[in-house]
Every structure is written in structure tokens, then in C-alpha cells.
């Protein structure tokens, strides 16, 4: 197990309230958690519980209503836009890139490192782009227009773009939704490899409880009803029948994965169906 001493803390969220300013209602309140170097933290919760809003707030797309977000000990709103984008990389759910090729798209991840009046990319930029094209198995797509590749490939390429930013913190919003299990495994294994090898801190919103359980070091379970964190900790502490019932209002059975010994959630068809006509 990787040690998570305070000096390795990358992201610290303190007493955060967030939401869209127009509605003036905080979707989430009193959020506290940290993400350390080489740690993968997953955010779980029902649809509309504010997982994406939380991620957008941490990536500074939305300003927080209350509380603090610290990146490597410095308050994130005090870090310049350019510097921030060399430290955090974000992969949002829907990617669009007009007409550019996959290679041009990934190269944009190096933009934060361009100096003033720098017109061309350096050899280092190109090498990094090629390294992540190879790591994501997308080398053969490099000259294909971004809008012509499949959903799974778009996710892979977007992660490659985020990784060429050489971030210390990687934020991902449901990178595996709508993908088949081979792409799910490929993407999560890649993220896992990056966190192990490069020590990137990863904060990820996941829909699939079992994937989160399998890959994460820490889970954060958000309760839509109370608008705050219901539980956080290791997968075996968070994924319990009682907590899942409380947050998702669904009966589940939890068994241990025989190989990884991580908790695994099972749904089962209802036995006692009430006849419709009565």
C-alpha cells in the first residue's frame, strides 16, 4: 500500500460548497477530502447528485460558493490560468474537436508549455505526443480526423491529451461510460499505470461501483438527499449493503471478488412481483 503522508497531498478540498451560481442553490455542501500523490480517488453517487459539478468546481470551470480548494498547498484561484493547466488536466465527458486530426488534438495538450511568441512545437512536445499515442494504442489513428473515430477511441485520445499536459492531478468525468468492457479495462488500466509509474494523483467520477471498487484506493460516496459526502474510505469500508441502500435506495448483495478481494456489488431481480392488475 502506498503511503499517503500529508506532504504528498496534491489536492485538498476544505469545507467546499458548490453549485451553479444562477440557481443560487448549493448542490453540494461541506465537502472535505484530499487526494495524494499516486492515489486514485473515485467519486460515486446517484445521477444528479453533483459529481460532475464537484469535478467542474475543482477544475475551476465553476467558482466555488464556499470553502477552499488547495493544489499542492496553494489556493487554486490564486494560481494563474497557464500554470494551473500545467498542473491539472481534465477529461470531460463529451469531447468535440471540429476538424483537427488526432495528433493535432493531442498536441494541444502541450499548449500550456508554449512560451510567449513560440510558434512551433519543440521536439520534446512531439516525443511526448508520440509516447502517449503509443501508450494508448492509438498510433494508427494519428492522421484521422478526431470526429471520425469511435467513442472509446475518443476517450483514449482525450486521456492521451490530458497526459501530455504532464499534470500532477488528473481529473476525469466518467471516462468509461458507454464503453464496452475491453475499452473500460484498457482505460482504467492505463490510468492505474500512470498513477503507479508517474505518481499522478487521480480524481475520477465513476458510475460503475464495481469498477470503482476494483481500481480505486479511496472512494467518496455522495448522498443526493443530504447533499454531502455519506462515506469515504477504502472500498471495503464504503461499499457495504447498508451504505449502498442508503445512498442508492436499492437492495444489493455484496460479495468479495475472489481474485482482488475487493467488494463487488450484485443486483438481483425482484422475486415477489406484485401483479399489475391488483
Amino acid at each position: 500500500m502506498r503511503e499517503t503522508t500529508p506532504n504528498k497531498t496534491i489536492l485538498e478540498v476544505k469545507n467546499l460548497s458548490c453549485g451553479y451560481s444562477k440557481t443560487n442553490i448549493s448542490i453540494l455542501q461541506n465537502i472535505d477530502f484530499t487526494v495524494s500523490k499516486g492515489e486514485m480517488v473515485s467519486i460515486l453517487g446517484t445521477n444528479g447528485s453533483g459529481k460532475t459539478t464537484l469535478l467542474k468546481t475543482i477544475s475551476s470551470i465553476i467558482s466555488p460558493a464556499k470553502g477552499k480548494i488547495l493544489l499542492q498547498g496553494e489556493e487554486i484561484k490564486n494560481i494563474s490560468l497557464k500554470e494551473r493547466s500545467t498542473k491539472t488536466a481534465v477529461v470531460m465527458q463529451f469531447q468535440n474537436a471540429a476538424y483537427m486530426t488526432v495528433e493535432e488534438y493531442i498536441l494541444l495538450g502541450r499548449l500550456p508549455y508554449f512560451k510567449k511568441f513560440q510558434f512551433f512545437e519543440t521536439q520534446k512536445d512531439i516525443d511526448l505526443v508520440h509516447k502517449y499515442l503509443e501508450l494508448t494504442n492509438t498510433m494508427e489513428l494519428k492522421d484521422v480526423p478526431f470526429n471520425e473515430i469511435s467513442g472509446g477511441e475518443k476517450q483514449l485520445v482525450s486521456i492521451a491529451r490530458a497526459l501530455v499536459q504532464e499534470p500532477v492531478l488528473l481529473l476525469l468525468d466518467e471516462p468509461t461510460s458507454h464503453l464496452d468492457i475491453s475499452h473500460q479495462a484498457q482505460i482504467l488500466n492505463l490510468i492505474n499505470q500512470m498513477k503507479e509509474q508517474l505518481g499522478i494523483a487521480v480524481l475520477i467520477v465513476l458510475h460503475d461501483i464495481n469498477l470503482a471498487s476494483e481500481y480505486s484506493d479511496t472512494l467518496i460516496l455522495i448522498n443526493k438527499g443530504t447533499r454531502t459526502i455519506q462515506a469515504k474510505g477504502k472500498p471495503e469500508d464504503v461499499i457495504t449493503e447498508k451504505l449502498i441502500k442508503k445512498v442508492y435506495n436499492t437492495d444489493v448483495y455484496i460479495k468479495e471478488n475472489p481474485i482482488s478481494s475487493k467488494p463487488c456489488v450484485f443486483l438481483s431481480k425482484k422475486e415477489n412481483i406484485v401483479p399489475m392488475n391488483q
Binding site: S59, S85, M92, L108, P112
Partner: peptide
């Protein structure tokens, strides 16, 4: 949004 995340 993405452009801002790239420091623009």
C-alpha cells in the same frame, strides 16, 4: 471550457 483548461 476545454480551451480554458489548457490555459487560454
Amino acid at each position: 471550457e476545454q480551451a480554458a483548461l489548457l490555459g487560454v
